[in-house]
């Protein structure tokens, strides 16, 4: 049934560090690669070399500019994939029971053999995390690489989502949010992790770490005190040169 579990034993999800993400799209490529070759139907492309290429992606990177009231604007790269919400609206609207949230780890998945491709779950998701595959006619979404994280055929360092494994900047972290001592829980606590659209009550598991404050134009350098001029008035040869140049016509600055 598409009832949501009252609670999940673990809450697996991602922390995405908006301070660190450089917007390279490597996670998009590794996600597409892994999820095309593994779990479920492949992520198809339409007209990949033609006009208006289109395809199914489970992870997309936006770029935003934030302009504060004063000071320079900041560019923020913004990866977006399924947030594996605790109150996942995409699950409860599903008429067939194809969408479900696992009670053991909280991962939201689609049973592609039962999906009728009505698209209602994509309508119910405020984040645009679900895409109807145009070739298969079934709904695709992030599986949190469920076929990697428990896969004992993979070396242990590879048992994390493909996007996390590939991120060259270390901007993506995977872990259990139900454990307050896990690395992801600690990161969220220390850096003030936030929910996207909290007003909609979806209670996302994935958290975003806000960018740290950047330098300002009028910030003084830490080294500034060490760089104060030693001599205020020139002496010796420089003093003579200063006076000699002053005597030339044309004035001084």
């Amino acid at each position: 049934m598409t009832d949501l579990p009252a609670q999940t034993t673990r809450k697996l999800g991602l922390v995405i560090d908006l301070d660190t993400c450089v917007g390279c799209h490597a996670c998009v490529i590794s996600c597409k690669g892994w999820n095309t070759e593994n779990y479920g139907a492949p992520l198809s492309d339409q007209r990949p070399y033609g006009d208006e290429p289109m395809g199914t992606f489970l992870n997309r990177i936006h770029s935003y500019e934030v302009q504060p009231d004063t000071g320079p604007a900041q560019t923020i790269h913004f990866p977006k994939s399924c947030l594996h919400c605790e109150n996942a609206p995409c699950v409860t609207v599903c008429p067939t029971g194809a969408s479900y949230k696992r009670s053991e780890d909280g991962i939201v998945l689609v049973n592609e053999d039962h999906c009728i491709g009505c698209g209602l779950c994509a309508w119910a998701c405020p984040y645009g995390a679900r895409e109807l595959d145009q070739a298969e006619g079934v709904m695709k979404k992030c599986t949190l690489c469920v076929d990697r994280i428990y896969n004992e055929n993979l070396p242990e360092e590879d048992r994390e989502p493909a996007c996390v494994r590939t991120c060259p900047a270390g901007a993506r972290h995977f872990g259990d949010f139900a454990d307050p001592n896990s690395a992801v829980s600690q990161l969220v606590e220390k850096r003030g992790g936030i929910d996207l659209m909290p007003e909609l009550g979806t209670a996302p598991v994935n958290k975003y770490l806000p960018p740290r404050a950047k330098d300002r134009w009028d910030d003084e350098s830490l080294l500034a005190p060490l760089l104060t001029p030693v001599a205020k008035e020139p002496s010796g040869f420089l003093s003579w040169l200063d006076k000699a140049l002053d005597k030339l016509p044309g004035g001084s600055a």
Binding site: G55, R60, H62, S63, Y64, E65, Q74, T75, E131, D195
Partner: peptide
């Protein structure tokens, strides 16, 4: 985006160069 409290947020670049699903 959760960035609204630091200023005005504007979309600078979409994830893809042509429309998606």
């Amino acid at each position: 985006t959760g960035l609204g409290d630091r200023g005005t947020v504007r979309s600078l670049a979409p994830p893809h160069t042509s429309p998606n699903y």
